[in-house]
Design a protein around this nucleic acid. Structure first.
Length: 205
DNA sequence: GCGACAG
DNA sequence: ATCTTGTCGC
């Protein structure tokens, strides 16, 4: 299938206007984690749900992914897999593997899925996509047009980029991610990453 | 044209 | 992301 970059870009610019960078919830009673693993054109997405730091539910979906990966358009590949999961289960807030507003048009995969489902989301990426690095109230941050677009959290040699997805403030996003970051990735995403990887490996077709 | 480029 | 064995370190 051919990828329409022009239409995709127009949609991102439209949806970017709907992003809310303020908290839309009181307490993060449950925190979800979303990630996808692939194997020959097939993708397996997993939504892990944690309560008080402990996993209480896992949901997954497997289907063909005809959209190629193009930097800046990751959402068109992964959001279709995330939608059914968030339609069935709505955590207080969800950590998404990838950037939120720290994106060329302010609509990374975390913001995209948040806006179309209405679920509060936080972007957690392992690598920078856009922005210049500099110091800020969180230590280091990514700046774009002189504004903070992501906080850089560091643990030894490892670092993760935390950004507003939708319906959450950067301050709250950083606070939530910090309490759940115990190993390579924040717990909700780490669990979804390992489970989706296991499920897609055993997918025989 | 050259380098950068989430997963 | 995925392709892939051994290997260094706690």
């Amino acid at each position: 299938m051919l990828f329409r970059a022009r239409r995709a870009r127009a949609l991102q610019e439209e949806l970017a206007k709907k992003v809310v960078a303020e908290d839309c919830f009181e307490e993060a009673e449950t925190v979800g984690g979303l990630d996808v693993s692939y194997k020959k054109g097939i993708g397996c997405a997993v939504l892990s749900v944690l309560k008080d730091g402990e996993p209480v539910k896992f949901l997954y979906t497997i289907s063909k992914v005809p959209i190629p990966y193009v930097p800046g358009f990751l959402a068109f590949r992964e959001v279709p897999l995330y939608i059914p999961l968030l339609k069935e289960e709505k955590p207080s807030v969800v950590l998404v593997d990838g950037h939120g507003i720290a994106h060329p048009r302010g609509l990374g995969v975390a913001s995209h899925v948040g806006v179309v489902t209405g679920v509060p989301t936080i972007g957690v990426a392992k690598k920078r996509l856009v922005g210049e690095e500099g110091s800020c109230e969180y230590g280091k941050c990514l700046f774009k047009d002189g504004k903070v677009i992501a906080a850089i959290l560091e643990r030894g040699k490892r670092r993760i980029y935390v950004s507003v997805g939708h319906c959450v403030s950067l301050r709250t996003a950083v606070e939530i991610v910090k309490t759940l970051w115990k190993s390579r990735l924040p717990e909700p995403i780490r669990l979804s990453d390992s489970l989706s990887r296991r499920l897609i490996r055993q997918w025989s077709p």
